[in-house]
Amino acid sequence: MVDTGSQITTIDPVLASDLHLKIEGLTGVSGVATQSRSAFTFVDLVEVGRHSVSQFLAIIQDIAELKAADPRIRGILGENFLSHFDLLIDNRQQILCLDESSILAHAIKGDHILLEQPYGPRDDSPFTRPMIVSVRLTTANVAPVLLRLDSGSNAAVLYAVEPRLLRVPVNRAPVLKRVVNGVEQIFAVLPAQDILVGACPVRQVSFVTPMNEVGSGPNPREDGLLPTGAFERVFISYSKNYAALAPWARSGLDR
């Protein structure tokens, strides 16, 4: 799975065993209100089409939920691979493009939306800087929030919610559930609202917010996640530090 929201590439333990990868130690791994420790290794070479990156770190972690959705998935391709290229995700055409030549950057039209610094110190983010944009919730009079552009998520997430965004109490809102490390995690579904990313509108986005944590980890460096599936096309220039977003003709996360 291609995941712009994951800083480190992940390899399924069975695949790691097949490749005879050497475990170098343990490291902390954070997710949406989750925290765990996983083994890490160093990979000699990863190739995607004609593009390759050598000698980089990967974690070895069970991905049972992903494999239940599609047993062909053997891992997660994270930013420590993707950040070596300009990246185009075309959701309508179902195409992923990687580019090292700046040709895509010259061809893609649209406003350049500056990628924001995450919360916290500038110099303590390991591996790569997360792809974060400033987002305004147009149906609520609140300050802009920082959301990570996440191709590995199918739901928009706010880690914490101001009371004014709730039209009903959280304990009466619809809920979604998932199981992480054997523990059930519950999310409240917030009323749909419009958002604005730069000058790019996205209509009627239904955010979810976690109701319980699985493990305790560091404070998040952004306010939530915004799936790249909210847009028809997403272009990310890691080297130039901007994103260009094309909305669906009728935007929404139900596409």
Rank of each mutant, 00 (worst) to 15 (best):
D3K: 08
G5S: 15
G5N: 14
S6C: 11
I11N: 06
V14L: 05
S17N: 03
L26Q: 08
T27C: 02
G28E: 07
A33E: 09
S36T: 08
S38D: 09
A39Q: 12
F40P: 01
T41M: 01
A58S: 01
Q61M: 12
Q61Y: 04
A68I: 00
I73A: 02
I73K: 02
R74P: 06
E79F: 12
H84P: 14
Q94E: 09
S102L: 14
I108H: 12
K109V: 03
Y119D: 11
S125R: 15
S125C: 14
F127C: 04
R129T: 15
S134K: 12
R136P: 06
R136C: 11
V142K: 07
A156Q: 01
A160S: 04
L165A: 07
V168I: 07
L176H: 13
R178C: 01
E184I: 04
F187H: 01
L190W: 02
A192D: 05
D194P: 12
V197H: 05
G198H: 11
R203K: 11
Q204D: 13
S206D: 06
S206W: 03
V208S: 02
G215F: 03
S216Q: 10
G217R: 10
G217N: 11
N219W: 13
P220L: 10
R221W: 12
T228M: 08
G229M: 15
F231C: 09
E232T: 07
K240Q: 11
A243R: 11
A249Q: 04
D254C: 05
R255Q: 02
